[in-house]
Simulated scan of single mutants.
Amino acid sequence: MSTLTFRRVTRDDFPLLAQWLANPHVERWWNHETDPAAVERDFGASADGREPSEDFLLLVDEQPAGLIQRSRLTDYPEELETFAELTDVPDGAVIVDYFIGATEHTGQGLGTAMIAAMVAKIWTELPATPAVLAAVVAANRNSWRALERAGFRRVAEGPMEPDNPVDDPLHYVYRLDRPAA
Rank of each mutant, 00 (worst) to 15 (best):
E81Q: 15
R50E: 15
M118S: 13
H105T: 11
L126Y: 01
A156I: 09
G92T: 12
A37S: 11
F43I: 05
L176S: 01
P24L: 04
W30I: 07
R175W: 04
G158L: 12
A47W: 11
R154H: 08
L17A: 05
P36T: 04
N164K: 01
L16T: 15
D97P: 04
D12A: 15
L59G: 06
D167E: 02
W29Q: 00
W30C: 01
R11I: 02
V94F: 14
V39P: 00
T82W: 05
G66W: 05
H105L: 02
D13S: 08
L133A: 06
T87W: 13
L133H: 09
V136E: 11
E81I: 09
T82F: 08
A38N: 01
A117P: 00
D35I: 03
V96S: 12
W123Q: 04
F6C: 06
V26Q: 07
R149L: 12
P162K: 11
L16G: 04
F83V: 01
P15G: 05
E85D: 13
V60E: 02
E157K: 15
R154S: 03
R154Q: 13
V60Q: 04
V89T: 14
L176D: 02
V173S: 12
V132F: 05
T103Y: 06
A135D: 13
L126R: 10
D97K: 08
A102R: 11
G107C: 08
R7T: 09
T106Y: 01
N23L: 06
V137Q: 07
E78G: 12
R72C: 02
H32G: 12
A181V: 11
S2L: 04
V94N: 13
V60R: 01
Q63Y: 00
T10C: 06
F14G: 03
V26W: 08
D75T: 13
L59R: 09
L170G: 04
A131P: 10
P165I: 09
F99M: 05
D61G: 02
V173E: 13
S46D: 00
R28L: 11
G66S: 12
W30R: 07
L133I: 06
R175S: 11
Y172L: 14
G49N: 13
M1G: 15
R7A: 05
V155P: 00
W20G: 10
A84C: 01
T87F: 14
A116R: 07
D88N: 12
P179E: 01
M160Y: 11
L21G: 05
D97L: 01
A139W: 00
P52F: 07
L57Y: 09
W144C: 03
S71V: 13
V155A: 05
E78L: 07
D12L: 08
V89M: 12
S46A: 00
A138S: 02
T87V: 15
Q108V: 15
V173Q: 14
L58Y: 06
A84S: 15
S143E: 01
L57P: 03
F99L: 14
T34M: 03
V132M: 10
E161W: 04
D167G: 00
A45F: 03
R70T: 11
A93C: 14
E51N: 12
L133G: 08
R178N: 08
L58N: 07
T3D: 15
T106K: 03
V166S: 10
E79F: 06
G66D: 09
A131Y: 00
G101S: 00
L170Q: 15
V136G: 04
F83I: 04
A38H: 03
A139L: 08
A139I: 02
V96G: 07
T82L: 15
G151E: 14
P127I: 10
L21S: 05
